[in-house]
Amino acid sequence: MPDLPADLRHPAAHRPGHGDPEWSAMRRILVVRPDNVGDVLMTGPVFRALRAVAPHASLDLLASPGGTAAAALLPEVDDVVTASVSWQQLDLVPGADPDADLVEELTARDHDAAIVLTSFSQSPWPAAELARRAGIGVRVGTSKEFGGALLTHWVPAPPDEVHQVDRMLGLLAAVGVPSQGHTLHARVPLDTHVPAALDLARYAVVAPGASCPSRRWPAERFAAVVRGLADDGLTVAVTGTEREAELVAAVAGDVGLPVTGLELGDLAAVLADAEVVVANNSGGVHLADAVGAPVVELFAGTETVDQYRPRSTRAEVLTRPVSCSPCRQLVCPFDQECLEIGPDEVLAASRRLRRVGVA
């Protein structure tokens, strides 16, 4: 059998004759990332790069209801379009056009370009079709599979294991937008409300929640970490959403400070001054990464570590290799062997990372 050529990308991808868009001449650019808080925070380097090449353009973000709050922490984002897009929903009404109102709104906004950001397992083509219907002339995305001319600039997909930030910056570089660095960043609002018990205190933050059960390290092990950090002389804030109040209270026990229902900007302020943050693979880790807090991450096998690991701060990622990873399951069908990590290991990592030595 003859040797195959090194470049096996589809001949329609990055077609000759389709030059780079004229970014500096654009009035309005839409970045599409309708995912969760952590995914939006990882777009920070994308917006920084776009601002450098299009200093006068309005940079808008199409975000999910859950991801919208994170946009307020990205200083380069000018406006947000919040929508529950059809390709992120599990149930749709037959015969309905679930994106009709969104198409109408985007048409009125009159964007010059849409940049569709995806993970390795997502397709850009539904968003590209949405942008085409809205009359957006330049449509940029990356994909392995063929989708016709829905993308005007179809960039071949990088290897699956590439970090999400590098994946997004590589997409921009392919269409003439050079990187301004891959470090995450977040703007901590000036008018934040931080629990009074943390004022002037040396404290750690423990965040035991996650978006699904398969990503959650057991609560009793988190509770043991809280006790160990308290024994080190730290105030330990245990954070979570209002829906996680029962979990937060159980983990805090008699020694931790339960803190639930913080606005994302308030949580950013709390994390920014923490000596160390201990959390599952969740938006809290990416927020800690963006504000420079040292972080110990308990990483379940639902995803691949190298795609999401924190790189903007001092961090240790704790996990166990398993044959079923990445499973992307909401509930583990086994015994979470990927999170067979003891509290002593987590405490040791926390002590290595802390800004101030153990008391």
Rank of each mutant, 00 (worst) to 15 (best):
D91A: 13
V194N: 02
L271V: 01
E145W: 11
A72Y: 10
W217Y: 05
D78L: 00
A70H: 14
F146H: 15
P124T: 06
C324I: 10
S312Y: 04
V206K: 05
D289N: 13
A279C: 11
G261I: 09
G148E: 01
E340L: 12
A72F: 04
F299P: 00
A63K: 00
D99M: 03
T260Y: 04
G176W: 10
H182I: 12
V322K: 06
V238P: 04
R132Q: 14
P326A: 06
P195V: 06
G147Y: 10
V165K: 11
R328L: 13
T118K: 11
T241Q: 12
G176R: 13
R216M: 14
Q164K: 06
S214R: 12
P55Q: 01
A6L: 14
E104N: 10
P126R: 07
M26D: 03
R132H: 13
L4N: 07
L171G: 04
A108G: 11
A290H: 06
G38K: 08
R167C: 04
H286K: 03
R28E: 08
E303Q: 13
A237Q: 12
V331I: 05
G38N: 12
L41A: 09
A72E: 15
D160F: 02
L92D: 09
G38W: 01
A70D: 14
L171E: 10
W23Q: 05
A348I: 06
L198Q: 07
V255C: 10
H153V: 09
A25W: 03
D91V: 13
R354S: 14
